[in-house]
Design a protein around this nucleic acid. Structure first.
Lengths: 216, 216
DNA sequence: GTCAACGTTTGTGTATACAAGAATGGCATT
DNA sequence: AATGCCATTCTTGTATACACAAACGTTGAC
């Protein structure tokens, strides 16, 4: 319970939303949440305010908070921006690579290889996230890194669905290999291009994604 | 006073921070703010929470809120990301341009021309912002547009300083012309490249910017 | 004289109470 | 029977009060 109740609640509710425990469109009642978590309404409101600022929920004056339903089109737009930011991170990483970052990328890349070989989709999902985060960090741009992590977090549930698609695991890993090669070779433009398409594939295969979502 | 006091306060304090009324590093006392705006502490706290989520201030548990000092390096990083996002917006605008967006770009571009010709730096500053926003809107990506507007807002004070630099006005406008040409020609790659450098110039001329900031 | 410890003060964190607005349901009227 | 208006109730928005933690100052001891 991270220091103060408000932030803890924010994370708690955020996770609940991202894991669809609170469905899009659902109304979040402050009193109900307060009872559920055993706190008063004040920290609940603070948490909701922050989630509103992040864009996960919408607070309509005097009418309560509802979980935002991004909708397929908006999700596509978010992937589009994510691809661009990751591309930038890759290009910077290639130019600025130092030993620590290189080691971090190698390590996470290795873990991805193992998960992919084992066909363990859940493990790969986690390792993949670490791999991408290693690239963000390697960009040596704190601000870019923060933006990437935040957007990555919001897109997390959709990425997860995406990985369930057949053959995506091995395809994803081979794309990782090419990305690592480009970054280690110091080829910023190539790293940018590869990462953009790697992330963008989520968009190209968008019909699969929509189908997976509808299936739930 | 937009509907509820919390949001009004958020905007109010945000403006105060962006206009340096509250200096970076300054501690924001909840009680003082509450008295100043004639409200209780509760909405003040809500406003501070939101500003923390946006990244303008930092709330350290039990130690209050301080205005974040981005520092030259971080500002540079923000311009770097801004350049990337604007580039994407330009490239999408070129591909997806419709009549309404085209008209909006033409209109704002025209106003920039007048301000630049008149040498009116303050007017150009405003018209320039509208011009860029017209491009964001033309991208037809709501999410990208929101991200751009938000980041633009945070960089606003630095852009303003930038425009004071000699000759920047006419240089900026001629770059605008090339950008408009590329977008209207449907050349997404060229629009992206031009916008990236247009915004990035703020970074290249970074020493000027730092000097201007130090001068305050 | 200096350092440490304890107490006071100031300010954040949480809870609760109160007020105002919106939604819903019932009753009356057409 | 249907529609419109009014009242009640529920929920949000704001204020205030209380509790706890941290920082600073003062005092005492070494």
């Amino acid at each position: 319970m991270s220091e103060n109740v408000g932030r803890w609640l924010r994370d708690e509710i955020e996770n609940a939303i991202l894991s669809y425990e609170f469905a899009p469109g659902e109304r979040l009642d402050e009193t109900v949440l307060a009872n559920r978590f055993g706190v008063s309404r004040t920290p609940v409101r603070e948490a909701l305010m922050q989630l509103d600022a992040i864009g996960l929920i919408e607070i309509r004056p005097r009418r309560g908070a509802i979980v935002i339903d991004p909708g397929p089109h908006r999700i596509y737009e978010m992937f589009e921006v994510m691809a661009e930011l990751e591309g930038l991170a890759g290009s910077l990483a290639a130019r600025r690579l130092d030993k620590a970052s290189r080691d971090a990328i190698t390590a996470t890349h290795g873990r991805c290889e193992q998960s992919a070989a084992a066909g363990d989709s859940d493990a790969y999902y986690y390792d993949n996230e670490e791999f991408h985060k290693a690239i963000y960090a390697a960009s040596r741009s704190d601000f870019l890194q923060e933006q990437c992590v935040q957007l990555h977090r919001r897109l997390r549930p959709y990425r997860r669905l995406q990985l369930r698609v057949r053959n995506r695991l091995s395809t994803s890993f081979s794309e990782h290999c090419a990305i690592v090669d480009a970054i280690f070779a110091g080829d910023g433009d190539e790293a940018r291009r590869l990462l953009r398409t790697h992330v963008g594939i989520q968009g190209e295969r968008f019909s699969d994604l929509v189908a997976s979502m509808a299936a739930r």
